[in-house]
Design a protein around this nucleic acid. Structure first.
Lengths: 111, 111
DNA sequence: AAAGTAGTTTCCAATTAGGAAACTACATTC
DNA sequence: GAATGTAGTTTCCTAATTGGAAACTACTTT
């Protein structure tokens, strides 16, 4: 018996804040920390930690630079991050679309 | 400033076990408790609790009956459950598809 | 010196997930 | 009629997660 597709869902990707963050990055080369914080409507501390989490997982790259003299941080998706995100979307679709197996193989008669 | 679609995600729907359960029910009129337990590969206790959670939320109907003399339980989606699930899918797509707002409205100049 | 920018880290409370074990209620078997 | 099996349900418990607040770092401007 094969595993239910659910078990292939990536918790790191599934969590709504991170899912939205990755979805944003999947459509832009790079996004600013503050832009993400504002559009996702979360605190600095939360974004900072979620970004670190995703960076540690190898899903997101964090680039530090300056605009004028001010520090600034940009996030982008790594290739692995893009794969993880796309795989996750595929799995979600699979869960939504695959009909429940009627399992009328031998050995499943009513009792 | 309008809310990010993420905030419209329904936690009750989003959680992977419940998401998969609802996805299954969305494609079948009714499914047996044991069938769901086996295909989702979870313990009886977990399915029992998730089913109750979804029932209390009004998303799932639980029907008790007998097959021969043995008790049996079937789950089905209520209309509200179907709406909640479909809304959730719409929101997921919206998050995935809506490009990050470049927000070049006045007042967003570089510093 | 004080206040502001741009985050980061620590702290904390609240919630959740999920298995194990115990329990209910009825049916069958020895 | 005592033990065992079916079909769940409830209670117990541990581990992990979520997310804001507050404190902190480091540099800049007033």
């Amino acid at each position: 018996m094969s595993a239910h597709p659910r078990v292939r869902l990536d918790d790191l990707v599934h969590q709504p804040v991170r899912f939205s963050l990755l979805a944003g990055l999947a459509q832009a080369d790079e996004l600013e920390f503050r832009f993400l914080r504002d559009t996702l409507q979360i605190s600095d501390s939360l974004l900072s930690r979620q970004a670190s989490t995703l960076e540690q997982a190898g899903y997101v790259a964090i680039r530090k630079g300056h605009v004028g003299k001010w520090p600034r941080t940009w996030l982008s998706l790594t290739p692995e991050g893009r794969n993880a995100f796309n795989d996750h979307l595929r799995t979600l679709r699979e869960i939504v679309e695959s009909p429940p197996e009627t399992s009328d193989a031998p050995g499943n008669e009513e009792r």
